[in-house]
């Protein structure tokens, strides 16, 4: 009964969800990603697999910047107290964007393939790079989810998108050699790095899922200090 009811809500909600998503921003990020991925093909550069992997990563980062806006909802307060739970609404958004994003990602890989010689393409582990791309987008999603959960902002996207490029850069700069995330294909650290990537993907999705439900109890940091969860921009 409940499942059928939910299914009916999802069916009814899909169209307005598709309409309300920030497609222009997503398309902007995705377009830049395709442009980056197309550089080797456009200029007929014969790039080795290591550089191609970085091209794919740059494209993935463009997509992640777009993903930062997925939870932007200008009508958040107007729909602040409705019975359809937030996790369902967010999951629907993510599912719609995820489907479109999968098509985009296939296009990115296709464009890279078109610009790579057979040998370089064979040396490029597309599956593992997809995990990296998923983790980067998952990171954006987790940040946006946390911003929605812990503040009253309607549009977490701009702040998340601004912070997002900093994280991979910080990872590239700060992580020690043995635990590097951005390793070239064929490197002995590749397997370890991708275990880490898969962990990041799982962790970010878990954070997003954890931030989904609306709180029923307020988290009180230090009893007596009356801090509570900061709620910026909510108005008192």
């Amino acid at each position: 009964m409940r499942v059928r009811r939910r299914a009916a809500v999802v069916a009814a909600l899909t169209r307005p969800t598709v309409r309300s998503l920030p497609w222009r921003l997503l398309a902007g990020g995705w377009s830049l990603g395709v442009v980056v991925a197309a550089v080797p093909a456009l200029f007929s550069l014969d790039l080795p697999a290591a550089v191609l992997a970085n091209v794919v990563r740059a494209a993935a980062l463009c997509g992640a910047v777009g993903t930062a806006f997925v939870l932007d909802d200008p009508a958040r307060h107007t729909t602040g107290a409705v019975p359809v739970p937030r996790p369902l609404r967010q999951a629907l958004r993510v599912a719609v964007v995820g489907l479109a994003g999968a098509v985009w990602w296939a296009a990115v890989l296709g464009v890279v393939r078109a610009g790579a010689d057979a040998e370089s393409w064979a040396a490029l582990p597309a599956g593992a790079l997809t995990v990296e791309a998923g983790a980067l987008s998952g990171l954006a999603l987790a940040l946006a989810g946390a911003a929605v959960r812990f503040s009253a902002v309607r549009l977490p996207g701009p702040a998340v998108a601004a912070a997002l490029p900093a994280l991979p850069v910080a990872a590239a700069v700060f992580l020690p050699y043995e635990h590097a995330l951005f390793v070239p294909p064929g490197d002995p650290r590749w397997a370890d790095a991708h275990t880490l990537w898969a962990g990041i993907l799982a962790a970010t999705l878990a954070v997003w899922a954890g931030c989904g439900p609306e709180p029923r109890r307020r988290v009180r940091a230090v009893p007596g200090r009356g801090g509570g969860v900061p709620q910026r921009g909510g108005g008192r």
Partner: peptide, 20 residues
Amino acid sequence: GFHPDFTAFEFVDYVAILKD
């Protein structure tokens, strides 16, 4: 706040869906 691209009807209908 509103989704500015929605019509008045679409928006109210959207809220109605969210009200189950």
